[in-house]
Structure formats: structure tokens, C-alpha cells
Amino acid sequence: MRRDAWWLQPTLVFLGLGAFIVYATWAAFQGVNYAWGPYLSPLYSPLLFGPHSWFGPEPGWWPRWLVFSPALLILWAPGGFRVTCYYYRGAYYKGFWADPPNCTVREPRKTYWGERRFPLIWQNIHRYFMYLALLFLVDLFVDFVRSLRWADAAHPGRVVWGLGVGSIVLFVNWFLLSGYTLGCHSIRHLIGGGRDLLSAIPKRAQAYNCVSCLNRKHMQWAWMSLFWVAFTDFYVRMCAMGMIRDWRIF
């Protein structure tokens, strides 16, 4: 029987993921204060409906009983990517379902299906969420570039290039999400890991080595990017609410 603090790791996972889920759900249902100046919260990007969005204002088909928030239209994709991620699966099976609570620690239930049957057999959809996550990376980089374009106070209607702390926050968010997404086990497989003769595909072999390098720290990328997504939303929200003032570097 283990006598060390085996409960610490699953508890930290429970608290960390739980805190993010609570914050992200709260932020997603707000529907306001998700943009300020050229900054857009990553929880609302891409902005499909709403002010300055791709497809115009709130759609008519949106159910009346549900608060309209553009975040609710897109968060299923990055959320699905994280839920089906191989690292998070192992972590939340321990932290949320005690399946097992930790290595060599007794489980509270006898039955076990694993990922062989519904619903967990759907974890195999991970690679499709990965394709979507790659599109989100492109979108978030565009958001960063847009965050450098400020309305020119002297000439209304014109924009000037500038850098604020918020732009750096958005760039770090894109960088950490790239490290997490590009180190994904599914990408590692599809880029070359699924082939036995990597020497026959030298370019893909190089890419495989790069992805493997990121993959070795997949857990760290996962946690850092998760924290930074929430922090980026918080930063933009605080700016939009006038609680803090964004510092313009140039």
C-alpha cells in the first residue's frame, strides 16, 4: 500500500482542470467584454456572429431561452481537442473518475470498460479535433497580427501599427497553443509515426523528429497553454471593463 502523498497529483489535476472549466464556462456565457481595441479573447475567436464578426449580428435561429454568446459556437472544437487529448485523458481519468486514483491505488468501483465501448470509444475522434485545432492556430495568429493594428486617433478611419502588452499576451497564447497542438500524438502519427520506413520519406522524418521533440513535453505544453488561454481572456476582459489599462509599448 502506498504511503506517500499519492492523492496530491490527481487533486491538483482536479483543481486545475476544474478551475479552468468553471472560468471558461462563466466567460463563455458572458457574451460581452470579450474584445477591446484590436484585442480579441481566444475564447471568442474566431468571432462568427456579433459585432465586427465574420457573419454579422446574432443569428435569428438562436434559441430564445439560451443566452447568446459567440463563444458557445466555437468552444466545442478546442474543448473537444483537449477532452480527447491523450495526455488529458490519462490525467482526468485519475483526477475526476478515480480510474485509477493513482498508480497502484485501489479503485472505488469494480466494473471497467476502458475505451472499448460507447461513450469512451469516441475518444478515437481525436485526430479530427486536431485538424480543427490547426485551423484555430491560424486564426489565433491572425488575431495577433490584428492586435498590432490600432485605430489612428489623429486620422479617424485609418490604422497604424503599434504594440501593446495585450499583443504580447496574445502572441504568447498563440505560441503556447502551437507548442501544445503541434506536439499532439495524432500529428506525430500522421506526420510519419505511422510509417515503418521513415528513411524513405526524409522530409516527413524531419517533421516527425520535430513533433516528437515537442511531444516529449506535451504535458507541460498542455498546462501552460491552458492557463494562458484563461489568462488572455482575463486580460482582455479586464481591459474591456476598464479595470486595467493596457500599456502601449510603441
Binding site: Y86, G90, Y93, G114, R116
Partner: peptide, 15 residues
């Protein structure tokens, strides 16, 4: 082989 039973706890890697 029951590969679907593995739920990726990584305990095997740790030991």
C-alpha cells in the same frame, strides 16, 4: 489484445 482497455494512465512508463 484489448488495446482499448488501456486508458493511458502512464503508470507503466513510470515504473
Amino acid at each position: 489484445g484489448g488495446l482499448g482497455y488501456c486508458n493511458i494512465t502512464k503508470c507503466c512508463t513510470k515504473v
